[in-house]
């Protein structure tokens, strides 16, 4: 199409100036965090009881949310990409709702559905004594709600972009449907599955609005890293900054890990 598009030249200033402003705007806050960081007290701050509780809780819940997202999100991604059923397009649209929904709205929605007096929650409470709000599983529910769409969309895109002739070939050679999925499809979408999983994990780790609304805030039980950062800002700002650095580190790790993967194979559709 545009063959000259790749040639690099000195950008004209009407482009360069706003571009530099945009870059500075995105970089400066991160720089501010790094400059203001209490490097001397970092170890002490990160090994405090509140920090360790929040770190542990965040890791456990974000990993759980990722595992659940793969367990139920992968089948849904496969259905959306491969199966023909009425309302498929509608279902695809529904999956993206949590992506664009403000997380705090998601939290309220979760309360109204899974809260103690919620649509589903009241039966969970009366039949099995399960109450999700204010519990660690509640945090996992909130994180899964917000993060699972990343996995579904990434994997679904990969499945749709897949060359189906490879699967057809395996099938004609006598492989069963499940064997085709395990030995052909899964390895082919493997990188996307990993990318989707990492994105899901990162999103779950950073979840704030839905968590604080649905699961509340209690150190050691539902106070994840972002909540500890928010609460810390009022009591001990240095601690908030130290914990922010941890989250920043994770974000950078995700970017480095997926540097050329998720944009290419991700939202291919």
């Amino acid at each position: 199409m545009n063959k000259r598009g790749r040639s690099r030249s000195t950008p004209p200033w009407p482009v360069a100036i706003p571009a530099i402003i945009a870059l500075a705007f995105l970089v400066l806050p991160v720089l501010g965090l790094l400059i203001r960081a209490p490097w001397g007290r970092l170890i002490e701050l990160l090994t405090s009881r509140t920090s360790l509780d929040a770190l542990r809780l965040s890791l456990v819940t974000a990993l759980s949310a990722t595992v659940i997202s793969i367990a139920i999100g992968l089948p849904l991604a496969w259905l959306l990409a491969r199966a023909e059923f009425p309302g498929r397009r509608f279902a695809r649209a529904l999956v993206t709702v949590p992506l664009v929904l403000p997380p705090v709205v998601g939290g309220i929605a979760l309360l109204l559905a899974f809260g103690r007096r919620g649509m589903v929650g009241q039966y969970l409470d009366s039949c099995c004594g399960i109450t999700l709000p204010f519990s660690t599983p509640g945090v996992v529910v909130a994180e899964t709600f917000v993060a699972m769409p990343f996995l579904i969309i990434t994997v679904e895109g990969a499945l749709r972009g897949l060359d189906t002739r490879l699967e057809d070939a395996a099938a004609t050679l006598g492989a069963s449907k499940s064997a085709v999925f395990r030995r052909v499809t899964l390895p082919l979408i493997g990188p996307s599955l990993i990318a989707g999983g990492v994105l899901t994990f990162a999103r779950a780790l950073g979840e704030f609005g839905a968590t604080i609304t649905f699961a509340g805030n209690l150190p050691g039980v539902t106070q994840t890293l972002p909540l500890a950062v928010y609460m810390g800002l009022e009591g001990d700002p240095d601690q908030a900054i130290a914990l922010s650095l941890v989250l920043l580190l994770v974000s950078i790790a995700v970017l480095v890990g997926l540097r050329d993967r998720w944009l290419r194979t991700g939202v291919a559709s």
Binding site: L111, G115, R116, R117, P133, F134, I212, G216, N217, L218, P219, T222, Y230, M231
Partner: peptide, 17 residues
């Protein structure tokens, strides 16, 4: 739960949570 402010506490009560 230790809520952000008093209105959040009130909301959790109103919702019956």
């Amino acid at each position: 739960t230790e809520e952000v402010d008093v209105k959040s506490v009130l909301a959790k009560v109103e919702l019956g949570e």
